[in-house]
Design a protein around this nucleic acid. Structure first.
Lengths: 281, 281
DNA sequence: ACTACAGATGTAATAAATTTACATTTTCTA
DNA sequence: TAGAAAATGTAAATTTATTACATCTGTAGT
C-alpha cells in the first residue's frame, strides 16, 4: 500500500510535531528520500527522534525502512492509482488504465497467494487419474484454457461448460479423479451442488474461487486469488486474468514435478503443430 | 531506468567480487533492500567496501542510495529480471516468477500497443451488424472470453473454435459483419485462408495477432500485443494474457462509446445472474 | 488556580551502519 | 619472475539512526 497515501489518510492521527514532518515530506517527497534523518528533522523544525517516531507510527521499522517505502511509492511517477475508467477517458487513457489495473491486480494476487496450497494442488494434479475442469460463463473460458494446457501433458483431461455434462461427469467420478471448479463468485448454486456430488463419489475437488464462499466450503482445497472486487465493474476482468495466471502456475508446477523426460513430451506437442502453420520467414 | 536491468547489463564489466555481490542481489532483490551492507557483504562473501564500490560503479552515491534505487525498481510489481522458471525452483519461486513475467509482459504490451488501432477497432466493432470471434487451440479460450464479454452488450455475436463452423460462418458473412481472428502465431494456415474468405465476402477482418505474419496481411486491421517470444516456453502463456487484456480494452472502449443508457443494459445482465447464486452473507 | 498525570517533545548518550584511508593480495605484463 | 596496476580486505573514522531519559505541555480533577 502506498505510503504517501497512508500519510495523507493518517494526517489527523499525528501529533503536532509529527504533522510538521508529514508536511515536509508531502511537499517534497523526492527530496525526502535523499535526506538523512537529521536534515529532515531540521527542515521540519523538530528533533530527530520525532522523525523516527513518525516513521514507526506508519508501521515501518525506522527511518531507513521508511525511506525505502517512500521510494517505492514514488517509483514510476504515479503508480497505478487511477484504476477506474472514466466516461471522458480517451482511448489512450482507458487502454493504459486497464493494463495498469490488471497489473496491479496481479500484483495483489501474487502477494495474497498461499504457496502451500499451490504446492498441494500440484501434488493432487500430478497424482490424478483424470482431471476435469468446470466453469460457467466467464469462467468457462478459464476452464477451456486449463484444458488446453493440461491436455499437452498427456494426462486424461476433460472440460465442460455445460451443467448437464458436468453432472454426468461428476456422477461417474471416482477415487483418483480431480475436479477443478472455476468460479469468480463461489456462489453459483449448481456448481456448489456439483462439488458435493463429486466429493461424495470420492473425487478430489479443487476450487479456484473466493475463500469463505459456499463453493469453497465444499472443496478439498481452495485456491483464492483474492482480488479486490471493485476492479470488476460490470463484468469479470482482472479477477479472471488472475485465475488464468494461477492456471499457468499450476501447469508450470506440474511440468517441474514431472521432470525432464516429460518436457520432451511438451516439445513433441508443440512440434506437431508445425505442419499446420506457415513457415517463419 | 531500472537498476536491476542495469546490473544484468553490466554483469561482464564487474570484477570477480563485484559479480558475487550482483548475483546475491539478483537472486533475492526483495531481501537485499532490507539488508545492511554488512549482511550483504557476508552473503556475497566479500568485504563491505567491495559492496560499496559495487554501488558506486552503478552510478549511485553509496549503499543507501543504491538501496533506494533498487527499491524503486521493485516497486509496484514492476517486473524484474529473473523471468525464467528454473528446474530447481521452489513453488514460491516459480509462482512469483510466473506472476512477474506476466506483469512484465503486460507492461511491454501496453507500451507497444497502437492506440489509434484500438480506436479504429472500437469504431468497427460498435458499427458491426454482427461480430464473430474465431480462435483455435489456446486462442479458442480467448475467443470464448471475447464472446462472453460482447454478448453482454446485446449485440449479435458468435464464437467458433471449429474450422468447419468457421468456414460456414465466413461463407455466409456480409457487408457489416466484423470477424475477429485470434492467433498467437499468425501462421495457422486454415485461419489465413478463412480470413481471405471473409474478406472476399465484404466482412471486415480484425486480427489480434503478430504484425508481419501471413494472417496479419489478410486483415483490414491488426492489433498486435508484441510480446517477447521467449516468455512462452512450451505453451502460450503471457502472450495469451496480453490478448485477453486487449479484449478487455476493446470491450471497455465499446461500452464507453455506447454511453450511459447502455451501461444500464450491462447491469441488467449482471443482475439477471443473481437468481442462480447464493446470497452474499 | 493548583496538582498530578499522561502524552508529547527534546537532549544527549549509545549503537549501528557506512565510508574512508591505507595495507595486503592478486593478476597481468614485460 | 619482477614489478606495476588492479582488486580486495582491514581497521579506523565518520556519519547516521536509535535508545534512554529528562523536560515540557496540556488537561482533568480538586
Amino acid at each position: 500500500m502506498n505510503i504517501l497515501d497512508k500519510i495523507n489518510t493518517q494526517l489527523s492521527e499525528f501529533s503536532k510535531s509529527e504533522r510538521k514532518v508529514a508536511e515536509v515530506i508531502i511537499a517534497a517527497p523526492h527530496e525526502a528520500i535523499h535526506a538523512s534523518i537529521a536534515t529532515l528533522a531540521k527542515q521540519a523544525d523538530v528533533s530527530e527522534p520525532t522523525v523516527n517516531r513518525f516513521c514507526r507510527r506508519l508501521d515501518t521499522k525506522g527511518y531507513p525502512d521508511f525511506k525505502l517505502h517512500l521510494a517505492q511509492s514514488l517509483a514510476n511517477g504515479t503508480p497505478y492509482v487511477n484504476r477506474h475508467v472514466d466516461e471522458s477517458d480517451s482511448p489512450q487513457a482507458y487502454t493504459e488504465k486497464i493494463f495498469e489495473s490488471t497489473m496491479a491486480c496481479l500484483d495483489t494476487a501474487r502477494q495474497s497467494i498461499d504457496v502451500n496450497s499451490i504446492n498441494r494442488a500440484v501434488d493432487l494434479l500430478t497424482q490424478a487419474r483424470q482431471i476435469s475442469f468446470f466453469g460457467l460463463g466467464a469462467s468457462a473460458s478459464v476452464a477451456h484454457d486449463a484444458q488446453n494446457k493440461f491436455f499437452r501433458f498427456n494426462v486424461p483431461v476433460v472440460c465442460f461448460d455445460d451443467i448437464v455434462m458436468m453432472r454426468m461427469s461428476c456422477i461417474n467420478s471416482n477415487d483418483g479423479d480431480v475436479v477443478v471448479f472455476f468460479s469468480h463468485t463461489g456462489r453459483t448454486k449448481s456448481l456448489v451442488e456439483l462439488a458435493q456430488v463429486a466429493r461424495s463419489n470420492e473425487a478430489i475437488v479443487i476450487g479456484i474461487t473466493e475463500l469463505d464462499t459456499p463453493l469453497a466450503k465444499e472443496c478439498n482445497l481452495v485456491l483464492s486469488s483474492n482480488v479486490p472486487e471493485d476492479t470488476d465493474m460490470y463484468m469479470p476482468m482482472a479477477s479472471r486474468i488472475a485465475q488464468l495466471v494461477l492456471v499457468d502456475v499450476l501447469a508450470t508446477g506440474f511440468t517441474l514435478r514431472r521432470g525432464n523426460k516429460f518436457r520432451d513430451n511438451l516439445k513433441k506437442v508443440k512440434d506437431s503443430l508445425k505442419i499446420s502453420r506457415f513457415e517463419k520467414k
